[in-house]
Design a binder for these strands. Structure first.
Lengths: 329, 329
DNA sequence: CTGTTAGCGCGTTCAC
DNA sequence: GTGAACGCGCTAACAG
């Protein structure tokens, strides 16, 4: 920067001001400076700038996995909301593991982000402590934590699954099955399972038939394997709800391969309304969660908290989720 | 940090050393320092540290879209390769647009990354200049640029598509169609199209029948629409190659919905070997590109260049790509 | 509208 | 094995 300043014949301070539109630099001086910047190929050093301005321009966000379009949609929502704010996203993947989340939170905090977006409400004690000490706005997403750390942007996964069970019971289904991962890591998955079991019970259709397969992230392949177990254990199952559309799709394809008709021989429903569910044949009945909106609204909340300064009281923003009845169930 | 130092009764310097394992701090002092760090909830400020150490610990990577599992697999490959290196990934999405890439490159460079990974070899002139001035290792991925900026980790999209055409011609197909986006933005897409047209011509099967639909990112839905146009324009087409598995899947589902059998009435092939293609029914014939490997190898090359110091001559790392013959063609 | 001074919170370097 | 002085490249605050 000093080089640019010398080249133009002004002080470094003037160059610094020219970069930020706000300062009062004469149009002519700014033009000369920018020409010099171009000629010298100078690029501002923001890491130095943030040290003195005490603003890093970073937002951190942690998602379970990026190889899952629900979460990449959320990441996209965050990125889009950040555009033209001068804020940059630091993205991390927790692999559905609380200890990995803790490590990532520490790594992120070392970069002094101005706010942080988390997925879910399960964090280690140390993670919670670090977050509180950091003194930055926190937004938890994708579910409604019992003890929120700050703002919340999400929906109840249990109630969403409950809505789906009721909608399918209304269509006449009676023998309900559920396919999901083992509960340990994926809290949203276990909330969905609980919602399923509770509602089946409430409707007097219990107990629900549950097949569990390995740890998240769940794959289409695992859905295919799980439906085989389901058909072996309870051959008379009428409808199978899956923890996500991906496993539902895998299950449905396996059925077709075995010559079973969906939904005539067995009905299948998913969760998440991935693109595939509206395209495949038959189309998959599912729950639509506003993945992109979760990201953009979480980012908006964070921006508000960062810019507003005033802590306006932590709130919960409920995002939409609705049953999408299609052909598969 | 000063606070921790005072708390323990040592100098800030000793605390700084305790954080980096390398320094010579007595075990006992280190333990006392770490206990204090824990008690006070102190988190190292890396942005300040990187200013004086002249190492930011950032790697930048730009991908066209994160809502595409091929590229999110590459991002995952980069992230995994970076684990335990102390390096953190700064990820950006270009939306297949060169001008957005240019802006992102500038934004990234302001953070002084120690290396940068790009997708493809098409960059604006200013982007190339900035990259050269930055004086950091650059790795271009996913294709083989004509004028590489540094290392390259990728494969020839044109040749891959050519392999697929030949494999299908060997199976007896003669009337070839191609479905892809408009060429302007997606350079890999246009390379695939060129490979298709060239090979169909070489085999004496030309001219190829081409349907173009909007701008990338291509969706399943667009694949479904495109196959309709294809069937209207050239009803006797025997096999349709698609720019990606996503459009191939959309096309295949549309065919099934219309009561056409795949591959008996029309054969379909994709590109990318997405998970869906090995699960759907019928399974989709495609090109498998080593998406994850592209990421991990690109990151490995970058690490080598950063740590090695010596510029070992820019090379091209060819990643594997192979035809996967399945049931759809 | 522009320049000067000081300091952001660490790590480098050298001294002890 | 530990500490003190200094500076990384920039911006806040104040002066002019």
């Amino acid at each position: 920067m000093a080089e640019v300043a010398k080249y133009v014949g002004v002080s470094a301070m003037t160059v610094s001001r020219a970069f930020r539109q706000d300062a009062s630099v004469s149009e002519e001086t700014r033009k000369r400076i920018m020409d010099a910047v171009d000629a010298l190929g100078y690029v501002l050093d923001q890491s130095a700038g943030s040290l003195s301005s005490r603003r890093t321009g970073f937002i951190a966000a942690l998602v379970p996995s990026i190889n899952n379009s629900n979460f990449s949609d959320t990441a996209r929502g965050i990125t889009d909301a950040l555009e033209n704010t001068g804020l940059q996203l630091l993205l991390g993947y927790t692999d559905y593991a609380a200890d990995k989340e803790e490590k990532l939170i520490e790594a992120m905090l070392r970069r002094r982000p101005e706010g942080i977006i988390l997925t879910g409400g399960s964090h280690t004690i140390r993670a919670r402590r670090m977050l509180e000490n950091a003194n930055i706005p926190v937004v938890e997403t994708w579910e409604i934590p019992e003890k929120p750390l700050g703002h919340v942007v999400g929906f109840s996964n249990g109630e969403a699954m409950s809505m789906l069970v009721r909608a399918l019971a209304d269509k006449g289904y009676r023998k309900f099955g559920y396919i999901g991962g083992t509960t340990a890591r994926d809290t949203r998955g276990s909330q969905r399972r609980s919602g399923f079991l509770k509602t089946v019970e409430e409707l007097g259709l219990g107990p629900g038939r549950v097949i569990s397969f390995g740890v998240p992230p769940i794959t289409m392949q695992q859905g295919a394997q799980a439906i085989v177990s389901m058909l072996e254990s309870w051959p008379d199952t009428e409808v199978v709800l899956c923890v996500s559309d991906l496993s539902a799709f895998g299950a449905m394809m396996e059925c077709q391969r075995r010559g079973m008709r969906v939904p005539e021989d067995i009905a299948i429903a998913g969760f998440g309304d991935y693109e595939i569910s509206s395209i495949c044949h038959p189309r998959i009945t599912t729950i639509n969660a506003d993945c992109y909106g979760i990201g953009s609204q979480a980012a908006a909340k964070l921006l508000e908290a960062i810019q507003g300064g005033e802590p306006k009281g932590d709130e919960i923003t409920l995002t939409s989720c609705r049953v999408v009845l299609r052909e598969s169930a």
